[in-house]
């Protein structure tokens, strides 16, 4: 568009500069990571002796376990956070203003607090009775739920604000019980927001390092923690390979989540049910 820059050559020049900056700053790191994961050796400018050994190794032993731990934690924590966040948002929607502000603050605060501090707080709290969770897998799950519930809550709130006016009352007036209204009307209408929240929450959980490194038990090393300990020991290529799998798993899951609910698919499904 030419509202601001009228000269064609200036436009091309600026576009070129922007493209180069974007490529060097954002594209190159990603490319490097992928290259490193298949590098046999990297002593020259470009990696030599390409090999799939690192990628293959990352699918076995401790690294495979770490990937599995991350995936399990991510799925579990995302589901729990969704339930908690949606419940909180639905419960507080009609609450008095002051109560609502309080609920808002509590639900959204974890976003603002450094993850290391959250990890430390949970470590301190659950090393004492009555809740002795230190050294358990449950603590990892709880930590991740605390970290991502805020996003589920915020998304659900945004979805509720956009609910078409009166549909729930209408469903109620047609004789649906409150629980039926929830399951058949409210939640389906919130689905796009819930899907977005699930995607974000899952991605955050898969990549979480700051809090997890404070509280993980030896038997439940997550992929980010494993990447850190690999690179800390100097196994850079192995770290890169595991990172690539971590990214692939994350984006694979996000893609599935995105695809399952794309409008085209739902339209297709509707047509099939009509036939």
């Amino acid at each position: 568009m030419s509202e601001l820059i009228h000269s064609r050559s200036t436009r091309w020049l600026l576009a070129g500069a922007g493209l180069i900056v974007t490529a060097v700053l954002f594209g190159l790191p990603l490319l490097t990571l992928v290259l490193a994961s298949i590098a046999g050796e990297w002593t020259r400018a470009l990696p030599t002796h390409p090999t799939l050994a690192h990628l293959r190794a990352a699918l076995g032993g401790a690294q495979r376990a770490a990937l599995w731990h991350s995936l399990a934690t991510g799925v579990g924590a995302t589901l729990a956070a969704l339930v908690l966040g949606v419940w909180g948002a639905l419960a507080s929607r009609d609450a008095p203003r002051l109560v609502r502000r309080g609920v808002d603050a509590v639900f959204l605060l974890p976003v603002a607090i450094p993850s290391v501090s959250i990890g430390l707080a949970l470590l301190v709290a659950f090393s004492h009775p009555p809740l002795l969770l230190n050294g358990t897998v449950a603590l990892v799950g709880v930590t991740h739920v605390v970290l991502i519930t805020a996003y589920a809550y915020a998304s659900a709130q945004a979805g509720i604000a956009r609910l078409p006016a009166g549909v729930e009352e209408m469903a109620g007036s047609l004789g649906a019980t409150p629980s039926r209204v929830l399951v058949r009307v409210t939640l389906p209408l919130l689905l796009p927001q819930l899907r977005a929240a699930a995607a974000l929450g899952f991605a955050l959980s898969m990549g979480e390092l700051g809090a997890t490194i404070m509280i993980y038990p030896p038997g439940w090393v997550t992929a980010p923690v494993e990447v850190f300990s690999l690179t800390d020991r100097g196994s850079l290529f192995a770290g890169a390979a595991l990172s690539v799998w971590l990214l692939a798993t994350t984006f694979g899951a996000l893609w599935l989540l995105d695809r399952r609910g794309s409008p085209r698919r739902t339209a297709l499904a509707r047509r099939r049910s009509d036939a």
């Binding site: 954002f26 490097t32 990571l33 490193a36 974000l200 991605a203 990549g207 390092l209 850190f228 850079l236």
Partner: peptide
Amino acid sequence: YLAFPSFLVALSLTFL
């Protein structure tokens, strides 16, 4: 990019 864990940027930059 927002779904990308931050520490991976550090790792990539190490290679670069």
